[in-house]
Amino acid sequence: MWIKAGLIPLLLSYLAALVLMVLPLPPLLEMWRPDWLTLVLIYWLIAIPHRVGFTTVLVLGLLTDILMGSGFGIYAIALVVIAYPVLRHFQRLRNQSMLQQIIVVGMLVLMKRAIVYELEHALNGAVFNITYLYPVLTSMIAWYWVYLLLRKYRHRYAIR
């Protein structure tokens, strides 16, 4: 029943994104790690907004807070804030060219990272470093591949 509804494959895509967020990388590559969970959430919010909404985003944000060891709710707030324009304009985003989608995804990832930084700075005294913005660039590059991979995955497992 759950496989037919596509729930398990959907949950597995979230799990894969969470694992990719904490997968150990060499220090040089660590600063370039794409924002995998944000990319996966943006895709599902555009593709199936009737199934993936604010509750999903909030739960995944809280799980991310736990995984990243940040203040409880920081990632949740940032993800909910970027989910709003995606859900509001999902039809527009679907019909944009890939280049336009890449630019929008870059702006969304930048907005999410800015919110997380500001909250971390206010709560924990985090200091800004330009390397904090590198994942915006790699996320923009990764969007094309994430989009293609998840689109094929969605069709293969009939996630609707």
Score class of each variant (00 low, 15 high):
residue 53 G to I: 09
residue 35 D to P: 09
residue 53 G to Q: 11
residue 150 L to N: 01
residue 106 G to Q: 08
residue 158 A to I: 12
residue 73 G to R: 07
residue 145 W to S: 10
residue 6 G to D: 07
residue 16 A to W: 10
residue 109 V to H: 06
residue 81 V to D: 05
residue 80 V to W: 06
residue 14 Y to M: 14
residue 63 L to K: 00
residue 51 R to P: 02
residue 92 R to N: 12
residue 41 L to G: 02
residue 78 A to L: 10
residue 127 V to R: 13
residue 120 E to N: 13
residue 124 N to P: 01
residue 52 V to A: 03
residue 44 W to K: 05
residue 73 G to Y: 07
residue 120 E to Y: 12
residue 14 Y to T: 06
residue 21 M to G: 12
residue 49 P to R: 10
residue 28 L to K: 11
residue 31 M to A: 13
residue 30 E to N: 15
residue 64 T to A: 13
residue 126 A to F: 04
residue 115 I to Q: 01
residue 36 W to D: 01
residue 24 P to K: 12
residue 106 G to Y: 07
residue 16 A to Y: 10
residue 47 A to S: 13
residue 91 Q to I: 07
residue 15 L to H: 02
residue 99 L to W: 12
residue 71 G to D: 05
residue 31 M to R: 15
residue 146 V to N: 00
residue 85 P to L: 11
residue 156 R to W: 11
residue 7 L to V: 14
residue 141 I to H: 02
residue 26 P to V: 09
residue 144 Y to Q: 05
residue 33 R to E: 00
residue 108 L to N: 04
residue 1 M to T: 04
residue 8 I to C: 01
residue 110 L to E: 10
residue 52 V to Y: 01
residue 147 Y to C: 05
residue 141 I to T: 03
residue 21 M to V: 09
residue 108 L to C: 05
residue 41 L to E: 03
residue 80 V to I: 15
residue 70 S to F: 07
residue 119 L to C: 05
residue 118 E to G: 00
residue 157 Y to F: 15
residue 100 Q to D: 10
residue 62 L to C: 09
residue 83 A to W: 02
residue 137 L to G: 14
residue 100 Q to G: 13
residue 44 W to I: 01
residue 139 S to E: 08
residue 113 R to I: 11
residue 95 N to C: 07
residue 122 A to G: 07
residue 119 L to H: 06
residue 65 D to G: 09
residue 147 Y to V: 04
residue 93 L to M: 14
residue 133 L to N: 03
residue 81 V to I: 15
residue 26 P to S: 08
residue 74 I to F: 03
residue 82 I to Y: 08
residue 55 T to S: 15
residue 116 V to R: 04
residue 6 G to I: 03
residue 8 I to A: 06
residue 46 I to V: 15
residue 113 R to K: 13
residue 62 L to F: 14
residue 94 R to Q: 14
residue 135 P to F: 04
residue 106 G to L: 09
residue 146 V to S: 01
residue 114 A to V: 14
residue 108 L to H: 04
residue 80 V to P: 00
residue 65 D to F: 02
residue 8 I to P: 05
residue 3 I to W: 13
residue 153 Y to I: 03
residue 102 I to A: 13
